[in-house]
Design a protein around this nucleic acid. Sequence first.
DNA 1: TATTGTTATACTCTATAACTATA
DNA 2: TATAGTTATAGAGTATAACAATA
Lengths: 174, 174
Amino acid sequence: MRSHRDTSAAPSSEVEHEAVASGGKTGGKRAAAVDTRPLDGLIGYALRRAQLAVFDDAIRALAKLDLRPAQYSVLSLIAHTPGLRQSQVAEALGIQRANFVALLNGLERRGLALRSAAPNDRRSHALHLTEEGERVLRRANAVVAIIEGRLDAKLGPGGRAQLLELLKKLTAAD
Amino acid sequence: MRSHRDTSAAPSSEVEHEAVASGGKTGGKRAAAVDTRPLDGLIGYALRRAQLAVFDDAIRALAKLDLRPAQYSVLSLIAHTPGLRQSQVAEALGIQRANFVALLNGLERRGLALRSAAPNDRRSHALHLTEEGERVLRRANAVVAIIEGRLDAKLGPGGRAQLLELLKKLTAAD
DNA sequence: TATTGTTATACTCTATAACTATA
DNA sequence: TATAGTTATAGAGTATAACAATA
């Protein structure tokens, strides 16, 4: 997608507007990289860019199983604790229960998860994975392991533990 | 607009709840926290939760200036490098140039930024902040400084530099 | 009365195709 | 032909109100 841009060029604050008459067709008109230093030091900005970069990868990889990250997380939680109710899963993942309905409909329509009667409350549905759901989840777990492994390579030794620790501090309530 | 609900499908199999162990403690009105450990170790998941938590705060704070994070980042870049063209700013922030139009329209309508004639290319618009835009940006910078300061308190000494370093590694192209 | 699942709705964000005017 | 800005549109994601069944 993005063509490689070289030319770092010194971060001079003087911007040269002229030049590069750019009449050339095949030529070398290169877009000078915009100076993003005003934002680079912000945790919020760095966090957003990193999250987008990581999810870009994850979304593409999981798409091969026709799964989106949110669907994967739902399958994962249900598999680990069968019988969870919709509200519980939705709240744990920060999804409004109203929006969780369509998400679960999709998983159920594809035969990956199912709603069954909850034991003590006839308002609730207990959630379970089907055998197909378990199979898809296993394949998804393998995909995720590869993605996370690539991130480890980028982070270097000890990087994962360090990063998880720091992110946990940010996520904790005030 | 997805109003059609799934009437078919749903393997409607008999409700087979054999030994619905109910995950352990049934009863009790306390909302037992869902076990999210299957996800907690994932960089992707931790990154998303942290980003949402941080932005939740940032969105609320910037809303007092009627600014959203994306608008703030645009004002910030234009202020630092006046004369940037729309495509440059959009690409630097990972926004499609088509979507950047409405964003900039909003800033221009409010008198915070303006499009002026670009010197060498009559297709392009050079972007600048108005004086009001500079004023709003200064107030926004103060707001952002407070937010980032709160994050520093959570991260502890050295935490910011460490986190920025790790996030940079994740954002870098392969 | 309160809660669970549900529907409907609206608003933001994002992605893509196509147009225009320039280059 | 290619590029900058623009329009239109569609798809996800998200937030809120309201309703029926049940607690």
